[in-house]
Simulated scan of single mutants.
Amino acid sequence: MVGEFKPGLEGVPAALSSISYVDGREGILEYRGIRIEELAKYSTFLETAYLLIWGVLPTQEELAAFEHEIRYHRRIKYRIRDMMKCFPESGHPMDALQASAAALGLFYSRRDLQNPEYIRGAVVRLLAKIPTMVAAFQLIRKGNDPVSPRDDLDYSANFLYMLSEKEPDPLAARVFDICLTLHAEHTINASTFSAMVTASTLTDPYAVIASAVGTLGGPLHGGANEEVITMLEEIGSVENVPAYLEKCLQTKSKIMGFGHRVYKVKDPRATILQQLAEQLFEKFGRDEYYDIAIALEKAVEAELGHKGIHPNVDFYSGLVYRKLGIPTDLFTPIFAISRVAGWLAHWKEQLAENRIYRPTQIYTGQRNAPYIEIDKRTAADTEALIAAGAAS
């Protein structure tokens, strides 16, 4: 029996999961039961990734071993670098990342999904190599050779180093690491669901991550943080905020960085990101768009707060990345670097009790339509069939 149709599967449970928990009305996000505020304050991204994927906080020895494996596998095959050199310079980094992530499967194609060593190896390679590929394409599209990873730098500091070949300020590296932690997991969002559907076919984990990267690239998902910066540039000044908001309300246009399918209060990650932005501004100077963002948040709160429209994770993340010197079109690939941890956690959980996803549909087309021989077809016949299908 076909149930009630829910556009976008809104509110329809698709899995049982113990990875993360969200209470959208109270503004609560937990990874494996631990509040995101606690992890942002005390943890590191790799420790958080371990928690998400294996379900427990690692011991000091376990974390050291995990970090060592990640450092060892940071480098990418020269053939992948050569492939990336053939990508057009004008291509979006998310498209380059999706192609590169899929290409990893060619080098590590053996599927042994029942083997814990294979699972761990795939986890390590993807966490280690995705940042290297993002940084490599950034330099390659400028006509430069990629910068090799530095084994003496931690995960976040090394990525920032590979982008510029300059060792980052410790505050910048720590802020970036917290950003990765904040974006690492968020229940079954669009890209995670894409990963789970792909994983349910028992394909290799590199295809799973590539499918998730493709989904994340859309402006309604991971690409929204890029759109926030574009919006702030368009507004131009604090004085222009009221007129811009009024225009959005009149045209019913989406205000980028506001609203969430789950949160009806300010996203807890947005609160932390705003605090991180202010720390960076205090040390490195204020961003010209920050005052516009603050004014816009206040204006939206006054007009739409009663409807549960508040800043989400994308609203302040772009301002943080700008201050770290990261180009706007790398914002979403950085989201992917972080979310790999959550995708892998769901991949591993999916494998534990796998059943291939096969949802049903509610058919709205014609039935028993006649076949018209090609020499007897007319434009009017085609238009009639299209109209009949649209009306059914």
Score class of each variant (00 low, 15 high):
1 M>L: 08
5 F>H: 09
19 I>A: 00
21 Y>N: 07
21 Y>G: 03
22 V>D: 01
22 V>H: 12
25 R>T: 13
27 G>C: 09
28 I>Q: 08
28 I>T: 12
32 R>E: 12
32 R>L: 09
35 R>S: 12
36 I>W: 06
37 E>C: 03
44 T>G: 11
44 T>K: 14
45 F>S: 02
55 G>A: 04
58 P>G: 00
59 T>N: 06
66 F>D: 01
67 E>S: 10
76 I>F: 00
79 R>E: 15
82 D>G: 11
84 M>K: 06
84 M>H: 05
90 S>I: 09
91 G>I: 12
92 H>M: 05
93 P>Y: 12
99 A>G: 07
100 S>I: 08
107 F>Y: 14
108 Y>V: 00
109 S>P: 15
111 R>F: 11
111 R>D: 13
120 R>M: 07
122 A>E: 10
123 V>Q: 01
130 I>H: 02
138 Q>A: 15
145 D>M: 09
148 S>N: 14
150 R>I: 06
151 D>F: 06
152 D>K: 11
154 D>K: 06
162 M>D: 03
163 L>I: 13
164 S>C: 09
164 S>K: 14
166 K>W: 01
173 A>Y: 11
173 A>C: 02
177 D>M: 04
177 D>G: 10
178 I>Q: 03
178 I>F: 06
181 T>P: 01
184 A>V: 00
190 A>F: 04
192 T>S: 07
194 S>D: 02
196 M>V: 09
199 A>R: 07
200 S>E: 06
203 T>N: 01
203 T>W: 01
204 D>M: 01
205 P>I: 06
207 A>E: 11
207 A>W: 01
207 A>V: 03
211 S>N: 12
211 S>Y: 06
214 G>F: 01
219 P>A: 08
221 H>R: 04
221 H>P: 07
226 E>H: 00
228 V>M: 12
234 E>Q: 15
235 I>S: 05
239 E>F: 12
241 V>Q: 13
242 P>N: 14
247 K>W: 12
248 C>P: 09
249 L>K: 06
254 K>C: 10
256 M>L: 06
260 H>G: 02
265 V>I: 13
266 K>W: 00
269 R>I: 04
271 T>Y: 09
284 F>Y: 15
284 F>P: 00
285 G>E: 11
290 Y>P: 00
295 A>P: 00
298 K>Q: 15
299 A>H: 12
301 E>C: 05
302 A>Q: 09
303 E>T: 05
306 H>P: 00
307 K>M: 13
307 K>A: 12
309 I>R: 07
313 V>P: 01
315 F>K: 05
315 F>P: 10
317 S>N: 04
319 L>Q: 03
323 K>E: 13
323 K>D: 11
331 F>N: 07
336 A>E: 00
336 A>V: 15
338 S>V: 10
340 V>K: 05
343 W>D: 02
343 W>A: 02
345 A>D: 04
348 K>R: 13
351 L>N: 08
351 L>F: 05
357 Y>H: 15
357 Y>I: 03
357 Y>V: 01
360 T>P: 12
361 Q>G: 08
362 I>A: 14
363 Y>Q: 09
366 Q>W: 13
367 R>T: 11
370 P>G: 08
372 I>H: 01
374 I>Y: 09
379 A>H: 06
381 D>I: 13
381 D>W: 05
387 A>G: 14
387 A>F: 06
392 S>D: 10
